[in-house]
Amino acid sequence: GLTEEQKQEIREAFDLFDTDGSGTIDAKELKVAMRALGFEPKKEEIKKMISEIDKDGSGTIDFEEFLTMMTA
């Protein structure tokens, strides 16, 4: 499992990506986040990433899903 410290770091990354503070990361926010990390993702790639992570089919990534992605 994760230490509380690791969870906190992932939470901070999540909050950075969640620019509108909605508690979820949408495609637009993910794209901005990827760019910040030096990637140039295409729209299809973003969609694919979200569909792989987005277990509940909401079209957005919540913290639990993000946590799973970061620790996979």
Rank of each mutant, 00 (worst) to 15 (best):
G57D: 07
G21P: 01
E5A: 13
T60A: 08
R35G: 07
L37S: 03
K48F: 04
E29G: 07
P41E: 04
A33F: 12
D26M: 06
G21H: 14
I61Y: 03
F17I: 14
L67I: 07
G57W: 09
F14G: 00
T24D: 12
F66M: 02
I61C: 01
I50D: 03
K47R: 10
D54G: 10
D56Y: 09
D20Q: 06
K7N: 04
G1M: 11
K42W: 09
Q6W: 13
I61D: 00
G59V: 05
A13H: 06
I25Q: 00
D20W: 04
A36C: 14
T68Y: 10
P41F: 15
D20M: 04
L30K: 00
T71K: 08
T68K: 12
F14Y: 01
I53E: 03
I46G: 02
D54C: 13
S22L: 03
D15H: 08
F39E: 03
R35M: 08
F66Y: 02
M69Y: 15
E45D: 13
G59C: 07
T71C: 13
G57K: 06
K31E: 15
G21W: 03
E64T: 09
D18E: 01
M49H: 04
Q8A: 11
M70K: 01
D20L: 04
T3P: 04
M34V: 04
T3G: 03
Q8F: 07
P41Y: 15
G23T: 03
G23A: 02
I50E: 03
S22V: 04
A27V: 15
G21Y: 04
I50S: 02
E52F: 14
D62M: 05
T68D: 12
P41A: 10
L37Q: 03
S51W: 05
V32F: 12
E52R: 12
G38M: 01
D62Q: 05
K43T: 15
S51Q: 12
G38F: 01
E12Y: 10
I10R: 02
Q6K: 13
G38P: 01
I25F: 01
L16K: 14
I61N: 00
I46L: 12
A13Q: 10
K55M: 09
F39V: 09
T68H: 14
T3N: 07
M49I: 14
D56M: 09
L30N: 00
P41V: 15
Q6L: 13
F66L: 04
D62A: 06
F17L: 11
R11V: 02
I46E: 03
L37C: 15
S22E: 02
T24C: 09
T19R: 12
F17R: 02
E44K: 09
A33Q: 02
S22M: 05
G38S: 02
A33P: 00
G21A: 06
I10Y: 14
E12A: 12
K43M: 15
L37N: 03
K47W: 04
G38D: 03
A72D: 12
K48I: 08
D54I: 10
E12D: 13
D18C: 06
K42T: 15
E52N: 11
L30S: 01
K28A: 11
I25M: 05
I53P: 02
A13T: 13
G57H: 10
T68A: 14
R11W: 05
L30A: 03
T24L: 06
L2Y: 10
G38C: 10
A72P: 09
K47F: 06
K55W: 11
L37K: 03
S58A: 07
K43W: 15
L67H: 01
R11S: 02
G21R: 09
K31C: 15
I50A: 03
K31S: 11
M69A: 11
F66E: 00
I46R: 01
K55Q: 11
E52S: 13
F63H: 00
S22T: 11
E45A: 10
E45N: 08
K7I: 14
E9Q: 12
E4I: 09
M69G: 04
T3D: 05
A13W: 15
I10H: 04
E29Y: 12
I25H: 00
E64W: 12
D18W: 04
L16A: 09
D54A: 10
G59F: 06
S51T: 10
G23Q: 03
F66R: 00
R35Q: 14
E64C: 09
E12I: 12
T24P: 01
L16R: 13
E65G: 10
K7Y: 13
D56T: 10
M49Y: 03
E12M: 14
A33D: 00
K7L: 13
E29L: 13
T71M: 10
A36I: 12
L37F: 04
D20H: 05
T60Q: 12
M69S: 04
A33H: 02
K42H: 12
S22C: 05
I53C: 11
G59Q: 06
T19S: 11
E5K: 13
K48M: 09
T71L: 09
Q6V: 07
A36E: 09
L67Y: 07
I25N: 00
E12H: 13
E44I: 06
M70I: 13
K47T: 13
D15N: 14
L2F: 10
T3S: 13
K55D: 05
F39Y: 13
V32L: 14
K7Q: 06
D15G: 05
T60K: 12
K43E: 15
T3E: 02
E12R: 13
G59Y: 07
G57Y: 08
E64H: 07
I25G: 00
V32I: 09
T19Y: 14
R35I: 14
K31Y: 15
K31R: 10
E65W: 11
G1K: 12
S51F: 04
F17Q: 03
A72R: 12
E45W: 14
L67R: 01
G21T: 03
D26L: 09
E9Y: 09
E4W: 08
Q6R: 15
D20F: 04
G38R: 00
I61W: 03
E9S: 13
E45F: 13
E5T: 11
F14C: 03
D62P: 03
I50M: 13
D62C: 09
I25E: 00
K48S: 07
S58Q: 06
F39M: 08
D18K: 02
F17K: 00
A27G: 05
F17A: 15
A72H: 14
K48E: 10
L16N: 09
S58R: 08
D26R: 06
E9V: 14
G1N: 08
E40N: 15
K48D: 06
T24E: 08
E45R: 08
T71A: 14
A36N: 09
G1W: 12
L2N: 03
K47G: 05
D56L: 11
E45G: 06
K28E: 15
D20I: 03
S58H: 06
T68P: 01
A33C: 08
F17S: 09
T3F: 03
A13D: 02
L30W: 03
I53H: 13
I61Q: 00
K48T: 05
I61A: 01
E64L: 08
R35N: 10
T60Y: 08
T24N: 05
E52D: 11
E44Y: 02
L30H: 00
Q8L: 09
S22P: 01
E65R: 11
M70Q: 01
I53N: 06
L16D: 03
A36H: 14
D15A: 09
D54V: 10
D20K: 04
A33I: 15
K31F: 14
E9H: 15
E44M: 08
E40C: 14
E44P: 08
D62G: 07
L2P: 05
T71D: 05
T24G: 07
I46S: 02
T19D: 04
I25T: 00
G21F: 04
F63M: 02
M49D: 02
I61F: 12
D15L: 10
S58I: 04
A27T: 12
E40H: 13
D56Q: 07
